[in-house]
Design a protein around this nucleic acid. Sequence first.
DNA 1: GTCTATAGTGGGATAGAC
DNA 2: GTCTATCCCACTATAGAC
Lengths: 194, 194
Amino acid sequence: MGQSDTRTRIQGAATVLFRRNGYSATGLKRIAAEADAPFGSIYHFFPGGKQQLAETTIRTSGAEYGRMVLALLDSVPDPVESLVHAFEAAADDLAAADYADACPIGTVALEVASSNEVLRVATAEVFEEWVGTATRWFGRWVAEPKTAHSLAYSMIMMLEGAFMLSRAARDPKPLRVAGRSMAELLRAATTQRS
Amino acid sequence: MGQSDTRTRIQGAATVLFRRNGYSATGLKRIAAEADAPFGSIYHFFPGGKQQLAETTIRTSGAEYGRMVLALLDSVPDPVESLVHAFEAAADDLAAADYADACPIGTVALEVASSNEVLRVATAEVFEEWVGTATRWFGRWVAEPKTAHSLAYSMIMMLEGAFMLSRAARDPKPLRVAGRSMAELLRAATTQRS
DNA sequence: GTCTATAGTGGGATAGAC
DNA sequence: GTCTATCCCACTATAGAC
């Protein structure tokens, strides 16, 4: 256990730091210190260095976060209420975390988009996975697959944008507004309009 | 002219690099090189160093970008069509720029939100200014001020989230979907629903 | 004021003792 | 396999020549 435990602590510390401060601003020495692990252990478990560690955290925390959001959406029966509730929960969590822990991959995604192909592809695949999951969720209430797909994209984009504005302003309001807008979008998609 | 021209080139190069690669990944040496300016000139014109240079670019390019988006929205008479058109234009521009030049402050905003108060406040104030401008624009077609405010927030959040997904996937589609969703939101706000 | 050289710090990565 | 010491490089910042 001692061995894989070190690896777990390293990956956990990396996930937290990349999420809060991004890829470039996070040093491997800092990760080792936060993980209470010797510096060399990073290269033992992640021979590919910083990039491999980041790719691992992106894919792992990305999948985890997707499951968490889906579970949150499934915890309320009515889909419109569920959207409002999920964004409210995200707002509360973000405020409780002092506006530090939002999307685990958002900051890194923007940072590496034009500078690191390996990490860019990793973030793109995580987003794609989220869109697929969300499309299936919306598909339970929306007839047109294309509409479900658009709603899924919109939900993730609205969430990412809301995280950005809420963190910058240190204010949960953007996330709450985003939730109500997504509810409105779903209502519009399921309601006949004159 | 020679003097302030150097300052302009430095600020221009900084704006481009911060926008593409973020704050931490951008070195002052690189900025000086891209600006064809001696390294020392950065500290001559920006005695506060990297932070002051970044704050200046955030506020300046932020205001410019806000004016540009507003002009784009005002270039089409019908507001619903205008939203679709504006996001389409953003999609075309982003693809033409090889997915490098999206929002001038988005990447930096996420990077500094939990690590640099001066820059965090600068990004927050730019976002606030955009929301105000957009609220006035939506107010021309929506009666309720609160609704106009929500639409303004949603548009900016959707744009930021769409930039993130489009850059990660190197695909203009998220931006186009975002535009259609914003059009749908405005339609829902201006149409009677059964 | 313009520019260069360098100090001082922290980064990623590696070699090698244990 | 675990851990430490160190290398080399890039960074921010500054001192000082011109």
